[in-house]
Structure formats: C-alpha cells, structure tokens
Amino acid sequence: MTWGAPARTIHRVMNSDVPAVRAAGLTVARGARTVLKGLDFTVPRGQVTGLLGPSGCGKSTLMRAVVGAQAKVTGDLDVLGRPAGHPALRSRVGYVTQAPSVYVDLTVRQNLDYFASVLQPGTARADRRSTVQRVLAEVDLTSRADNLVSRLSGGQRSRASLAVALLGTPELLVLDEPTVGLDPVLRRDLWNLFHRLAADRGTTLLVSSHVMDEAERCDRLLLLRDGQLLADDTPEALRARTRTQTVEDAFLHLVDQAAHRQEATR
C-alpha cells in the first residue's frame, strides 16, 4: 500500500474530527479474568496521550485491543474511524510491544529493511535506504546500525523495536512502555521525539508507562487501575481537580477516593 502525499492530507482533513480512538463499554476477558471492565474514553488526534497505571492494571491489554491483537474484546472500540483490527488500519497504526520484537539474528539495518519492505513494498531501494537512515537517526542508533541485535543492550534493542514502528509514518503510534530501562538523557530525547511527531506530522501517540513522572510529559492522561479508568484528563486539570502538586499525588488521591466510595457503598 503506498499513500500519495496529497491523498493522505485529504484523508486526514476529512477525518480530523473523528478521535484517534473511541471506546465505549470496552471490556476484555483473558481466561476467567476480566482485565478491562467497561472503559469509556477517547484519544484525541495529534497529541501524546499517556496511559498510566501500576503494572498488571491492564495497560498492555488495552493497547493490544487498540491494535487489534487482543481476542475476546466486547463493547465498542473504534480506531481512526474504523473498528479496531480492521485490515485497512494495518498500514495506519504502528505498534511497539513491551518486549522488543525484532529479529535478534539480524542487524538493526536488516531488520528495518525487512519491515520497511513489508510496510511499503515496491518502494525503490534508495528510498527504502533513506527511510531506514531517517528512523535510525530518530532513535539514535545510527552508530550501531550494522550490529546484530543480539549484540545490543536492552535499551538499544527497545529502540530498534521502536524504530520499526516509525518506518511507515503511521497516523497512530501505540507504544507499550517504550522508555523502560533507558537512561534519563535518552528518555528525554525520546519524549521530545514523541512530541515532535505529534507537532510536525500530526501523529497521535498512545504511550504507556508505570513511571508517574513521565505523566507530566503527556498532553492527556488515562489513569488505569485494576481494569478501571480513574481519570481521563490533562495533567494540569488533574492536579487542579485533586489539589495536588504532581500527577503521582493526584493518582494516589484518586485511588483513596475510589476506595472510600467503595467502602461507603458496602
């Protein structure tokens, strides 16, 4: 599938009022457990939305549902105006799993070259090479491009995995904990990259993290706990509403509040 630039622009303008993700009563069961319990939320376009919550709260399941990799999803879940997992979305949504999913027995460049030809077959070799060069620079792996992935450190592997998602210039990027185990400088660089993608290309980013200080870097936040949404707001509004200084305090405040409410109804 190759997208002409003008066609793409028209497409975007036409759909710009449709949110990137819209969920209503989203419920997911894994085995006997209900992991997501009737979530309602929207993810606006062209912004960085953070999906925050403790590990095991259902973040990865939510992301897998959005990209259409999760079975047993009930309720409504629309992505870029189509039901999640629709074949037409496969070239428009980029997904990076928590564990780096690249071939360890290929070099970084060979990985990118392969995924690029899967995403955009028929591109001239020179174009593909320049795309690969661009994403290598974006994740700061140019100097390790010709190393086997198995020789890279954990952080470098996750950046190689992230680079794959940047290849096709997707409209929605779903990133599952992309900054785990990275040093502070690199983390800052990546967050700057995320915001640049949103500002320059109008890309929508849905980024999960269990580190609360990353929440401050997001345009919007979805706070998830135990399969339920505690909040869907901007960081500023969240702090103002809970009269707290940090998102972390706001999260704790909301958890306590929910516990109180539960006790009151008991």
């Binding site: 990209v67 990799a69 496969r90 949504v93 799993t97 995924f115 995403l119 794959v164």
Partner: peptide, 8 residues
C-alpha cells in the same frame, strides 16, 4: 504479532 499487525 508485529508482522500480523502490519499489512502482511
């Protein structure tokens, strides 16, 4: 999983 989320 990654490949199957792509147009392959």
């Amino acid at each position: 999983e990654r490949l199957l989320s792509m147009p392959l």
